[in-house]
């Protein structure tokens, strides 16, 4: 783990880090990844799932339904003529 990598990862995650933060995160993540490298000992695993228990074929019928009124959902948002305001695009 080096500072350049931390900078790039931070950029991907939309985080701006101070020089001190970069310094300390580089050290922490380096130690942590060093510890993670024990996983390299395990080469012959293949089975995996995205949940620890089986979650299979849970489907919903195509029935439209709205529970919470839109005004309530938009209550704390910054809106303009029903649109949600966002930042500049270019």
């Amino acid at each position: 783990m080096d500072k350049e990598t931390v900078r790039r990862v931070a950029m991907l995650a939309r985080l701006e880090l101070s020089e001190e933060e970069i310094e300390s995160f580089t050290k922490d993540l380096g130690e942590i990844l060093e510890h993670f490298s024990m996983l390299d000992e395990l080469q012959d695993l293949d089975d995996y799932g995205f949940n620890p228990v089986e979650v299979i074929d849970v489907l919903r019928d195509d029935e439209p339904h709205q529970e919470i009124p839109a005004e309530e959902l938009l209550r704390d948002m910054d809106t303009y003529e029903d649109y949600v305001r966002g930042p500049r695009l270019s």
Binding site: V58, L59, R60, D61, D62, E63, P64, H65, Q66, E67, I68, A70, L73, L74, T79, E81, D82, Y83, V84
Partner: peptide, 28 residues
């Protein structure tokens, strides 16, 4: 379960499609 024919902006919305924390997806 939001309807797909919403006309007025931000009328066919719910916590899930707004990405509100704590809301979850469920496949149609």
């Amino acid at each position: 379960a939001c309807p797909t024919d919403g006309v007025t902006p931000n009328s066919a919305i719910c916590p899930t499609c707004l990405g509100m924390p704590g809301a979850r997806p469920s496949l149609n």
